[in-house]
Structure formats: structure tokens, C-alpha cells
């Protein structure tokens, strides 16, 4: 088999996507059947999640099946998704952003809003993005944390977590 056309590569990817979603749908449906009671009257609490699970299974089967049938077909280049980058660096960045957000939430609860925000901004800019202009990094870190704290916390009265690590 010679080089795959972009169209064929797309079909292979759809096959994988369809199969992953198929598994997700089956697992979801299984959990729904195992944990949600059917209810006592009318359309109970189980019905909707169940129908959605079955729907997902059916649709992802169609997606995967269609892609399988077209795997050696011929068609237009589907074009890209409008997103930048490919492969490992992108995957790494997805994980990093996810972790930054989660760590921000965790820190906010523990170290309080001000410190958590300053740390998150500084870490993202300096370590993750490699920004080396000290004034920009410091300005953003202090500006974002103190700015939001002043405007929303003090002036507008929004609740900002104080954290449990520091006694003030």
C-alpha cells in the first residue's frame, strides 16, 4: 500500500475516534444500568442517561463504520482543524494547561487567592511559556492578583478564598 492521502488518514482517525466513543458509550450505558434506579413513576431518572448512552453507541458505530468503509476511498482533503501544532509538544501542552488550572484551584483553597494567583501567573509565564522579561512577569503576577483582589474582592464584594495555610 502506498502513501495514504490526507483523506485516507482522516478516515483512519475517524475510525479511532468512533471506536473510542463507542467504548465510552458502552461504559456509560453500563454504569447507568448498574447505578441509577429506573424510578417509581413516569419517565424515571434512568431513562435519559440511558437513551443518551445508547444514542452515543449507535452514532459512534456509524462514524467508525463509515470510516472503515471509506478507509481506502478517495476524497477531498478534509482540511485541518484550525488548531496549531501536532504531536507530542501539543499533547504536553494540553496536560500542562490542565495541570496549571487544577493546581491553581488547589492552591486557591490552600494558600488563598492572592498567593495562588500570583504563583500561577508567574509559573505559566516564566516556566511554561519561557517569558523572560522580568517586569512583564512580575507586573502580570502582581497586577492580576492584586487587581482582581482589589476590584472584585474589596470594591465589588465578591468572595475570594482566604486559604487555610496562612492564618490571615
Amino acid at each position: 500500500m502506498s502513501e495514504r492521502t490526507p483523506y485516507q488518514a482522516e478516515q483512519r482517525r475517524d475510525l479511532v475516534v468512533g471506536l473510542v466513543l463507542l467504548v465510552l458509550g458502552i461504559v456509560w450505558t453500563g454504569i447507568v444500568l448498574a447505578t441509577i434506579p429506573p424510578g417509581n413513576y413516569g419517565i424515571g431518572p434512568r431513562a435519559f442517561p440511558l437513551w443518551l448512552g445508547v444514542g452515543l453507541v449507535a452514532l459512534s458505530a456509524i462514524l467508525a463504520g463509515g470510516a472503515w468503509l471509506r478507509r481506502n476511498g478517495d476524497g477531498e482533503d478534509p482540511g485541518d482543524s484550525g488548531l496549531a501544532g501536532m504531536g507530542w509538544p501539543v499533547f504536553r501542552m494540553v496536560v500542562l494547561v490542565c495541570l496549571i488550572l487544577a493546581a491553581y484551584g488547589f492552591l486557591m483553597q490552600r494558600a488563598g487567592f492572592l498567593l495562588a494567583t500570583a504563583l500561577t501567573v508567574a509559573f505559566s509565564l516564566w516556566v511554561v511559556l519561557g517569558e523572560r522579561r522580568p517586569f512583564l512577569v512580575a507586573g502580570m503576577a502582581i497586577g492580576m492578583s492584586v487587581g482582581v483582589w482589589l476590584v472584585f474582592g474589596q470594591l465589588l464584594g465578591a468572595y475570594l478564598p482566604r486559604g487555610t495555610w496562612l492564618p490571615f
Binding site: 494547561v97 491553581y104 484551584g105 500561577t120 517569558e131 502580570m140 492580576m144 482582581v148
Partner: peptide
């Protein structure tokens, strides 16, 4: 820089 600001606004 804007993206980092959005991270904070997302969290907050």
C-alpha cells in the same frame, strides 16, 4: 499574556 490572564479569569 492574554492566555495567561484567561487562565486566571477561568479559575476565578
Amino acid at each position: 499574556v492574554l492566555a495567561v490572564a484567561i487562565v486566571i479569569m477561568c479559575g476565578f
